[in-house]
Structure formats: C-alpha cells, structure tokens
Design a protein around this nucleic acid. Structure first.
Lengths: 252, 252
DNA sequence: TTAGTATAATTGATATGACCACTTTAAATA
DNA sequence: TATTTAAAGTGGTCATATCAATTATACTAA
C-alpha cells in the first residue's frame, strides 16, 4: 500500500530549510544580516517562538551567528562541520578540548611509562620506524598525513606498553581525535618553532623509552601534550564558564 | 580599560552546555527520555521558550531526537565510541584483569588528582555520602551491593574531577568491571584485614581529596589498586612488575 | 480472559503578548 | 566639533493559551 508518505514537516524545520537554502544559493551572502526577527515573522507568517527555535538550529549548525541587540548574521559556510556529533561537540567547546588533552596526558603518559619498561627489541624497531616516518613528513604542509603519522607513532608506543586494554583505549580515542590533531597541525604548520619543538619532543620521548626510563618518558609525554594545549592558536570563542543549577534533566 | 571579560552566558547556551556534557559523560542511558518539557522548565527554572530553543540546538547537533506527543530522547552519540571494543575484550577474557588494574590506576589516579583540585562543596557532600554508604555495607557479606557502593564512590570522585571524557571512560569501564570487583570482594569477604584495609584506603583517599592534596590523592588511588591486585587470591602469575611508588610523577 | 476500541491524560508544537538587556542611532549638550 | 545622553531598534527571556500527536487508561465485545 503506497501511502504517499506525507511530509508534514513542522513549521520550525520549514523555516530552517528555507533560510538554509537562501544561504547556500547566495540570496544571503556571508556577513550579511538577516532581517530582524519581528520582520521575518511577518514575511514567513510564523510565530516568533517558532522562528527563534529555527534560528537556534541554524546557529547550532554554524550557519548564522547572533548578537543581542545587534542582529543575526550569515556565517562563512565553509566552516569545519564534523559529521560526528561528538567530534563536533568537542570541537565547539574549548573546555572539552582541554579536558581531552588531560585525558590523553593520563593515558599516553601511562603508555610511555610501561613502554619504557617492557618494550621488546621488535617494539623498539617499530617505534623507531614510526618516528622516522613522522619526521619525514613533518613540516611538509600536509597536516592530514602528519596527523596519521603522529597517530601511528603513539600507537606503536601504546603497543609496546603491552597492556591490551590501554592500547585499545588509546587507539579508539585517537581515531576519534585525529581530526582535532589535524586541526592543530594545520593551525601551526607555518610555525617553524612549534614544528621543531614537537619533533624534538617526539625524539626525546622515544629516547627515554629506549633507555628504559619510564618516569622520564611519562613526564615527556605529559609535557608534550601540555605544549600542544598551549600552542592551540585559539580561534576559541567565549570560554563561557559553566554555571549553576541545572540538574536532574533526565527521566528516572 | 579593564576587559572585565563578560561572563553573561545566556540561559539557552547554559542549558545546551549542561545537557551536552551529561550526554557526553554518559549520565544518560542511550535512548533514555529527557524529562517532559513542562517538568524540565520547573527543574531548570527557565522559560519554556528558552528551553525549546536549547532543545532545538541539541536536535540540530544530533544529540537528541524528538517526537511530538512522545518526548525527547537522547541519541547514542558517544555510545561507547571510546570503550566498545575494550568492553567486549574484557567481557570475553578475564585474564586481562591485571592489565585492567593498571589502566584503572591511570584513570582513577588522574580522577583523584583533579578531584582534589576541583571538587566543589556539592561534590564533596556527594563523595562523603557515597563513602558512608560504602562503609555501612562493607563487610556485611553482600559483595554485590558492596561492589555497587564501591562503584558509586569512585564515580562520585570521577565526577568531581570535572573532566567529561574522563568521567565517560571511567563510567564505562566500571560498568563492566563491577563483576570483577564483586569477585574480588567475594574472595576476601571473610578476611577482616583486607576488608579493613580497603576501607581505610577509601577514607584516606577521600580525605586527601577534601584537603586538596592532588598528588597524595593520586598516590593513594594508585596504591589502593595495587593492594587490590595483590590481594587477589588466585592463581595468576605474579606480575612482579614494579609497584613502585609514584612519587614526583608530574611537576605541575 | 483477551483483543480491540474509545476516551482521557500526557507531551511536543505553535501562537501571542509583554518585558528585559544590549546595540545602534540620533538628538542634545558642552 | 566632539562628547554625552536619550530614544529607537533588536535579540533574549518569560508567561499563558491552544493545537496536534502520542501514550495510557478504561471500557466493551468476542
């Protein structure tokens, strides 16, 4: 039975699609102001509440930005829009970025520590190879490949720690975060100082592991990520400190 | 001109951020329903309009889905993207239990460290309550309940660390490890010495956190798990690998 | 009892109006 | 002319009422 699948898309979604299409087809150009809300309401013949939920969705998708008392303005659409909602979330929220780095400090520091104690000869050969791969591609203005090489090096170290759960965890965290690493490298690809420093840190980390100095290896891994955190160029928006009461949001 | 850094985060963004972090850190159960809008409004003390613009943003980012007349439901965004393979592994092969303890030393040590630095008064109240719950049930020959109480205490500490991804990991790891903890408690439930020692360690851990001594809190968490490992009665090869003190791990 | 149906309660979607907070503009003042 | 002040413009929040879809409940019939 072919029920003709009526698409009663609700008012809000209709507004979103409408404005979206106007943005993409060039009716609105980046930087241009939308009509004031009270005027848009008349044009679209919808309530202001519905319009505002639609504008909120557009803002969430990075298509517009809003300033109280100012207006709604069209953003540059080429913005980095991650398909993974989780990545999108982390990327939008500078707090989460720092938190993720803290997590990596814990995990990768631990991996470096045990790798220094347990790495076999074969492990060391692999680590050395990954280090050389990374150094070959570093500073070559290909952040995507460099991010992958970076990942491979850290995975090799994780493997050398001979702790399977730890390795799995690091691998999964990394596959999710590789886009963020790529972003970091892109921001700093023209900064010779940062590039050199990162490579020095990698070398020192590997050296400490080869020497079996677990404490030092862990410290280097920790400091390395602190450096990454501090060299985030930060197009970061408001570091909106979180607030208070909002609790018990979920059912049962 | 003092910059004075405007911290006026608007109501809508506060709601979004609050719900986002709860979704990411796993406070929700995937597919779980949010409270109805009218109830949420009372909980959060905001207007329905503000709430709905926030929900609209969350929907746009793929974090929730909504059905008219039905409710708002959390999507499986972070559904164990980090931990799924790990959980399968641990479930399948309990032989990793010692490696898992190493992993826990890293994660829970980190959580204790940051909890000592960041715990709010409310966090401390919660931690204290969970500690008392655990002490009430400890040694009562009910390993299942005790394991759950143990989990709740460590989750409260993880929450106090205010690192959402870390909380997510610990929560997910724990939900699988609870059987392991239960096993440990069952084996030793008649051993007064071990029981007392575990409770003393818990008290010391909480005390260090309350005093804001992050380094000591981390060390206690680390030693606590070393003790758990060593008091596992059974077979497994003695992982004599260092149980070295963690002293001066990090500068910070 | 069981299945189906009709009714009521629940819940999200929309609309309207008012008021607040910030921004922009324009008028008033020095 | 430059600065200050007032007013208008505009997004943000709140409150209330109503519509529309879903879910829960009670009722009827087999």
């Amino acid at each position: 039975m072919s029920i003709s699948r009526i698409h009663t898309l609700n008012v809000t979604d209709a507004i979103v699609k409408k404005i979206e299409s106007m943005i993409v087809d060039g009716t609105y150009i980046p930087g241009q102001a939308l009509l004031p809300e009270r005027q848009l309401v008349k044009e679209l013949k919808v309530s202001r509440a519905s319009l505002r939920t639609a504008l909120s969705a557009l803002k969430a998708n990075g298509l517009i930005r809003s300033r109280q008392g100012g207006g709604h303005y069209v953003c540059d659409v080429a913005k980095n829009t991650f398909t993974d909602p989780l990545l999108n979330l982390i990327n939008r929220n500078i707090d989460f970025k720092f938190q993720v780095i803290e997590l990596r400090q814990s995990l990768e520091g631990t991996a470096a520590f045990y790798a220094a104690q347990r790495a076999t000869e074969q492990d060391k050969i692999t680590i050395q190879a990954r280090l050389e791969d990374l150094q070959k591609i570093a500073g070559k203005n290909s952040p995507k490949e460099e991010a992958e090489a970076d990942l491979e090096l850290h995975l090799a170290i994780a493997n050398a720690a001979h702790n399977t759960p730890l390795t799995l965890l690091i691998r999964n965290v990394y596959t999710v975060l590789i886009k963020l690493i790529e972003e970091h490298l892109s921001q700093n690809q023209h900064d010779e100082t940062i590039n050199n420093q990162l490579q020095i840190q990698h070398s020192e980390l590997v050296e400490a592991i080869f020497l079996g100095d677990g404490v030092r290896a862990r410290q280097i891994a920790y400091d390395h990520l602190s450096y990454v955190r501090d060299s985030f160029g930060d197009s970061c928006f408001t570091d909106n400190q979180n607030s208070e009461p909002l609790e018990n949001l979920f059912d049962q």
